[in-house]
């Protein structure tokens, strides 16, 4: 039985509990639920918001491609990825990944893999909105994110 991932790109917030419920409701075979939620930070008060730009035509497809790789690689019973776009204030959610499986290792690893690949391959870009009202800069990609993603290559 092939698992169909849930992928959503949206401006509005998401509800972690409701999303977990969607994957686990009525199931008796799930032994592990791993969730990752990425939040917007204010960088020690420096930022009032982040602007998340995305490539509408590609973001959904690319995350679906990453999800399919995760499903092929680990014995998952469900997988959800939700990525927000638009202006997001510190403390608000940006991204959600939920991986569910019979056993914890598959769920942990798949969730981690999803996040590493989302960061380096999903077409999203963050722009800072500084608290001092100055012109914000685009966030630079971190080489650590590339090396995190590279560790999944065999």
């Amino acid at each position: 039985m092939s698992v169909e991932p849930t992928i959503r790109i949206q401006q509005q917030d998401f509800d972690l509990a409701a999303e977990v419920e969607r994957l686990t409701q009525g199931r008796r075979d799930i032994g592990a639920v791993v969730t990752f939620t990425g939040l917007c930070r204010d960088e020690d008060g420096r930022l009032v918001a982040l602007e998340l730009e995305h490539y509408p035509g590609m973001a959904q497809d690319e995350i679906a491609r990453i999800a399919r790789q995760a499903i092929e690689r680990w014995p998952l019973t469900g997988l959800t990825a939700i990525h927000r776009h638009g202006r997001i204030a510190p403390g608000e959610n940006i991204v959600l990944v939920i991986a569910v499986a019979s056993h914890r290792q598959a769920a942990f690893e798949a969730a981690s893999f999803m996040m590493d690949y989302l960061k380096t391959r999903a077409p999203f870009w963050k722009k800072e909105h500084p608290a001092d009202g100055s012109q914000g800069e685009w966030v630079e990609a971190r080489s650590e994110d590339d090396s995190s993603a590279a560790r999944w290559e065999d």
């Binding site: 998340l52 990525h83 991204v95 380096t120 999903a122 077409p123 999203f124 870009w125 630079e140």
Partner: peptide
């Protein structure tokens, strides 16, 4: 049909 140019991605 469509070619996109963009910097390294910073989502997630």
């Amino acid at each position: 049909q469509e070619i996109a140019l963009f910097p390294p991605m910073t989502g997630g």
